[in-house]
Design a protein around this nucleic acid. Structure first.
Ligand SMILES: [Mn+2]
Ligand SMILES: [Mn+2]
Ligand SMILES: [Zn+2]
Ligand SMILES: [Zn+2]
Lengths: 138, 138
DNA sequence: AAATTACATTAGAAGCTTTCTAAATTATTG
DNA sequence: CAATAATTTAGAAAGCTTCTAATGTAATTT
């Protein structure tokens, strides 16, 4: 089911993505891909790394998150409050955003049907369609 | 067509929203609602105000944008880069986001058909559904 | 396996947008 | 006009992200 859980698998994934499998990247990838699909902030991942006794700087966490995103291993989502979330689920899907908690939750692609879309203007092309269902407990 | 363009109309709108029509709010509202639907950042609106010889502090621009948003006169959109945009179009519609330029453009509500949505989890209710069509020039 | 080269990590500073603070000003009410 | 409540403001502070340039590590070459 889950990909890239073992040490060797993680190293493979990094190499395939053109990233040197450094101690820090291996540890971060290991944490990211443990425990299902996640929506991680840099701060959270950094905290988890330190707790797991992997001393890594916040700068490296940011570097790694962006490199993983550029290589399609993560997807970046910015909702609110100037904080980025990095989604370990890079397949086609959408999101609930809990306004009270500031938390994201996946919506499976098949639960949202976008039946019509305008065509991309000018010489642009659609790179992604994000559907964010904002919910609150009032 | 456009609402709240004249001085008296703007004052009325502010009063109806429960906001004292101060020199600064009147000027900001006047700028915001001139020239059709807009997606404004605080910085841009502040710049326009200064250019129009309305000395107003950036703090007041932020205060006003948030007050207008809380009263339904604006809608806040956060896409990327930790910068908020305030949309003068508060009717039901969606957005193109030009990834190259960092610019938003309206999509009329009828051009996007969301034919199915999951129900809101737990005791939450849907407060808004945002569809963002990200486009890029290659 | 040492040397070389290219790439990665780091601490701390800096950047940028947004919010806060508390003092001064202005609008409204009586 | 006086009293009161709301608003504005400069500047500081906060919060997240990026940059810098020095140091460290992985990969490649000899
Ligand atoms: Mn980013
Ligand atoms: Mn805001
Ligand atoms: Zn997700
Ligand atoms: Zn809009």
């Amino acid at each position: 089911m889950k990909n890239g859980r073992t040490y060797a698998e993680i190293i493979d994934r990094l190499r395939q993505a053109g990233l040197r499998p450094t101690r820090q990247r291996i540890a971060l990838a290991g944490l990211m891909y443990s425990g299902g699909d996640r929506h991680l902030s840099a701060e959270i991942l950094h905290g988890e790394a330190l707790r797991a006794r992997v001393p890594v700087s916040l700068a490296t966490v940011y570097n790694s998150l962006h490199q993983f995103t550029a290589r399609g291993l993560l997807r970046e989502i910015v909702i609110d409050g100037g904080r980025s979330y990095f989604d370990t689920n890079v397949s086609d899907h959408h999101h609930f955003y809990f306004e009270n908690e500031g938390r994201l939750e996946d919506i499976p692609a098949e639960d949202v049907v976008v039946a019509a879309l305008p065509k991309a203007p000018g010489r642009t092309r659609i790179s992604r369609v994000d559907v964010i269902v904002r919910v609150r407990e009032d």
